[in-house]
Design a protein around this nucleic acid. Structure first.
Length: 345
DNA sequence: TCTGGGGTCCTAGGACCC
DNA sequence: TCTGGGGTCCTAGGACCC
């Protein structure tokens, strides 16, 4: 009997796979992608690493200098976001040609909604179509909702299909730590453990009211809901409307000069303004972010009297916000973020 | 492992208003 | 004048995700 399913399509090693299509001679070699491709650049991290590089202990998020130490034979490639964006669009276009609902969820993943008898057959069809048309491999998770489908695709990697529904949820998930759930990370897992809740089963059996006291009225009950295997089940096909936008830069060497700091903030504000104008959006609020050495991050924000995408106005506002910081320590990062007004109807 | 860049949503406290 | 209850907006920070 046909019923509705949520599938999560997750491209395998997406960035690395795109790079290997462009550089087939590197197949089988350890490859690390990140920054401008210079592994000696400080304060630069890996966007991804191939399985061959992972065997040497390299992983995404690792400083390139560390990756170079661990795997001196690795090939280091610069990150090329426009290429990944283009590859992503080709994949999503393939999915949209199929008789399913498609909700894009970032560069390398999408949720698919369909009503079918045999979801494994649909998943195999999606995988084959993507591989045939783009030469990229993906894994597919099948669930009753997005949360289950998302976890299922991770179990399916690489290049497989896995079904996680209400039927096998407890069997598959109950003994796993709480941070196996999508939306519970290391910090929350630790706090849960402090309450004696270590596994998904523990959390599923917990009192939502007690969780609300510890984590807030929305988050607490939400964690309980996740532990039961529940989640959003509606596939939204309308394009995502960004809530805001930001630009930030980590400097290879700390900034200590006030004027240099102000100049960088003005530069970032100008970029954000032109991004907003290009997107046809207005900015309602400006936030300046300063990361001091060592790694102490502070933000200050202000609501604009009138929403705008005017570069001069945004730059002045950002500089005024910057003026509220104590710039008494070396600065390693500066950022400017804006919150958009909802788009005109 | 001296720790990127770009997002989203929630929380808590205070201001302010009726 | 020893003092309620609620609603909304603003700000700073935290957590999580890719």
């Amino acid at each position: 009997m046909a019923r509705s399913w949520i599938l999560h399509v997750d491209l395998d090693q997406f960035i690395a796979a795109v790079e290997l299509l462009r550089h087939p001679e590197l197949r089988g070699r350890p490859v690390v992608v990140g920054g401008s491709g210079d592994p000696t650049a400080p304060r630069t991290v890996a966007a991804t690493a191939t399985y061959e590089a992972r065997e040497h202990g390299v992983h995404s998020g690792m400083p390139l200098r560390t990756a170079l130490r661990r795997c001196p034979d690795a090939v280091f490639l610069p990150s090329d976001p426009p290429a990944y964006e283009a590859a992503s669009e080709r994949v999503m276009a393939v999915l949209r040609e199929l008789p399913v609902l498609v909700e894009v969820w970032g560069w390398d993943e999408a949720f698919v909604g369909a009503t079918v008898d045999d979801p494994e057959a649909l998943a195999a069809g999606l995988r084959a179509a993507v591989l045939d048309r783009t030469a990229l491999s993906c894994s597919v998770g099948i669930g009753d909702n997005k949360h289950q489908a998302k976890l299922a695709s991770a179990f399916a990697k690489p290049g497989g299909i896995f079904r996680l529904t209400g039927e096998n949820w407890a069997e598959v998930m109950n003994d796993r730590p709480t941070d196996a759930l999508w939306g519970i990370g290391a910090r929350t897992a630790k706090k849960l453990a402090g309450l004696g809740l270590r596994t998904v089963a523990d959390l599923a059996a917990a009192d939502p009211a007690e969780l609300a006291r510890a984590f807030g009225p929305v988050n607490g009950p939400w964690y309980h809901y996740l532990a039961l295997g529940r989640g959003e089940a509606e596939v939204v096909t309308t394009p995502w409307v960004a809530r805001g936008h930001s630009r930030e830069t980590t400097f290879a060497r700390d900034l200590t000069d006030r004027d240099a700091v102000a100049a960088q903030v003005a530069e970032l504000a100008g970029q954000v303004a032109s991004d907003a104008a290009a997107a046809g959006r207005l900015c309602a609020r400006v936030t300046v972010k300063v990361r001091f050495t060592p790694f102490l991050t502070r933000t200050r924000q202000s609501t604009l009297p009138v929403a705008t995408a005017d570069a001069r106005v945004l730059t002045e506002a950002a500089l005024a916000v910057l003026g509220r910081f104590d710039l008494d320590r070396p600065v390693r990062l500066l950022g400017v973020a804006v919150e958009y007004t909802p788009p005109e109807a």
